[in-house]
Design a protein around this nucleic acid. Structure first.
Lengths: 125, 125
DNA sequence: CGGAATCCTTGACGATACTG
DNA sequence: CAGTATCGTCAAGGATTCCG
């Protein structure tokens, strides 16, 4: 990890953006944008994530200050997660990216088809 | 891969956003926002990326329609990469996210420090 | 229910060497 | 200079099991 061309700016930005890399993080932040949720609620909503990854992802988001974890010492246990102010603010540029992605999804798919189809029509997916 | 809560929207968005996961892709798109660049220029600018990853990343960006590849059949070869319209448009939400990340980097770092320091001062990283 | 711990598979990525 | 090919590593992440 060496700062490339514009000093440490890229590194700092990357440090924050890196969580976008985890597809789970983005998904969960978006979901929590709806309101506070319990552990299993999130798990069911995301569907496809393992408990392990959900726990790890939530830990990461909590550590970075995007979500708060509230545990009620009841039996059975009940833990709720909610976006912090920082998390809600993150939602703004994240939504913008999401909207752009959704709006331009067709263009990307078309570009892929064009790229894949040029010169090798026999090679199916 | 089953559509979770809001049908295929998430999947579609994710399909596009996934390239943000590759820290290389974002970096390169940002760099090419400056103008067309040659292969080695990019490699030198990013510094830390291997030829292999650079080639793969550029291929992916080209396939998705974000960059164009122009090869001049000279000796020695000369290949230039440039953002397409789609790529330049992607730059907008990407820059927004980058700006946000940079602006809030300190808050994230502070949150991390607070999280790491609470209750286990002896446990270094 | 929420989460920790363990095992194991996969593929992302780096390093290196070779080609045109 | 630009690109491909091959190999080795290493960690992300899934499945499973146990605990409070």
């Amino acid at each position: 990890m060496k700062p490339p061309h514009d000093s440490g700016r890229c590194r700092q930005a990357n440090e924050v953006i890196s969580l976008v890399g985890d597809k789970w993080s983005v998904h969960i932040v978006m979901l929590l944008g709806t309101g506070r949720k319990r552990f299993m609620e999130i798990k069911r909503a995301v569907d496809g994530i393992s408990q392990k990854m959900l726990t790890i992802t939530l830990r990461g988001l909590e550590r970075d200050g995007y979500v708060t974890r509230t545990a009620y010492p009841t039996i059975p246990p009940k833990v709720e997660y909610e976006l912090t102010d920082l998390g809600r603010e993150l939602l703004v540029p994240l939504d913008a990216l999401g909207s752009w992605a959704l709006a331009n999804h067709a263009r990307v798919v078309a570009a892929r088809a064009a790229y894949d189809g040029r010169g090798l029509p026999q090679a199916a997916e």
